[in-house]
Simulated scan of single mutants.
Amino acid sequence: MSNEKGNAMSDEKENPWGLKTDSNRTSNPGFNRETTATEVASTFSNVVRGKTVIVVGVSPKSLGESITLAFAANSPQLLVLASRTMSKIKAVATKVKEQYPNVQLQLVEVDLSSFASIREAATEINNLVDEIDILVNNAGVVVTDPRTTKDGLELQFGTNHIGIFLLTNLLMPKILEAAQKSQSKGSTRIINMTSAGHLISPIRFSDYNFKKRPEEIPEDERPMSRPGASFDPPPGKTYVPFVAYGQSKTGNILMALSISQKLASEGVRSIATHPGSIWTDMSRNLDEEHRNIIEKTGDFWKNQDQGGATTLVAALDPKLAEDKDIIYLADCQVAGCAPWASDPKAAARLWELSEEIVGQKFDLGQASNL
């Protein structure tokens, strides 16, 4: 996917997606696109030790697997693995137990395209844990044809953003419990896996289900446009899969922004991460045409362990607790993102829309009432 350049920062380096990164704002300026999740977790092993960690989106040959193994190697108190298919969760759990037999695991099924499933899973998780130190929202889908969730939402927006939004907020009391007990303010983390694909589209507040043509929605809700690249649908159509995906990934960043703004004083930090160019099991729904498009977007393709590294930095680096304005990382460093993904007004608007869609208010300004 073609990407626009992100916001400017000091001492910048530009990564392959055109996003400016700033290595002055993390503990390890030497971490880069080749760094592995294993290396990051080992560097911050003292941060992992004794923590309760939830990884959402766990299956073989996925970033969830590499992230889980990196945490497991460093003695967490409990790892909760949540995903849509129990057989796939069990396959990863077996691999964890083979390598780290002393790690305590709990396995939970959750379908992020179903509000009922999310609520059931949240209840189960809340009954399993006393607190949640780190929540990694790694799960997501990418499709090439119009599909809807069980609740009638466009599938990618409904799963990748709304599903994550609902699950996270239902787990928030246990997250706040961890923050209150923590001796290191800002070490309680909520990490959302996003993508440089967010550069394709802002949130289509007037048409998040893709029922309208681009010319029928406000200018500031339309996908990016540049010479030689168009994200407009064919005549007579309204759905563009990569625009839908981009919208959902923008949602992941805006949600992180909202949480950090609302809960910084409570000691909770939320950061969105771009894993880089990597083939995982998530690409199983892509047809040949769209796979070919994606193949042309990266000049450095990561393996699974490298793909999980940035998320581990976001979850564990103590220095990131110091700056609540950090909302997005790429290649293991703080990075700029599209202006529509770093706009506090858009974040507040999306939070309200998300509450309306799930039919429940989450007033994080009154966190003790959650």
Rank of each mutant, 00 (worst) to 15 (best):
P101N: 04
V129T: 12
D111L: 06
L128W: 02
V108W: 02
N126P: 06
L107T: 15
V96D: 10
V108I: 14
Y100H: 12
A116W: 00
N127R: 12
N102Q: 12
I125W: 03
E98C: 01
E120W: 00
R119Y: 04
E109I: 04
A121S: 08
I118P: 00
V110I: 13
N126T: 13
L105S: 06
N126C: 12
V110C: 03
L112T: 12
T94Y: 10
L107R: 04
L112R: 02
T94H: 10
E120D: 13
Y100D: 07
E124N: 10
E120N: 06
K97E: 15
L112Q: 10
I125R: 02
Q99G: 02
E124V: 12
E109P: 01
A121G: 01
S113V: 08
Q106R: 15
A121Q: 01
K97Q: 15
D111M: 08
V129S: 06
V103Y: 06
Y100I: 08
S113L: 07
A116D: 13
V108N: 03
V96F: 08
T123H: 03
D111W: 06
N127Y: 05
E131I: 11
I125M: 13
L128G: 03
R119Q: 13
V129E: 08
E109H: 01
D130R: 06
V129F: 05
L128N: 02
L105G: 08
K97T: 15
Q104K: 15
E120S: 07
K97M: 14
E98G: 07
A116M: 07
D111P: 04
T123L: 04
S114Y: 05
A116P: 02
R119L: 05
N126V: 10
Q106E: 14
Y100Q: 08
L105F: 08
V96E: 08
L105H: 05
R119G: 03
Y100R: 01
V96R: 05
E98S: 11
L105T: 09
A121D: 01
D111A: 09
I118Q: 00
F115M: 11
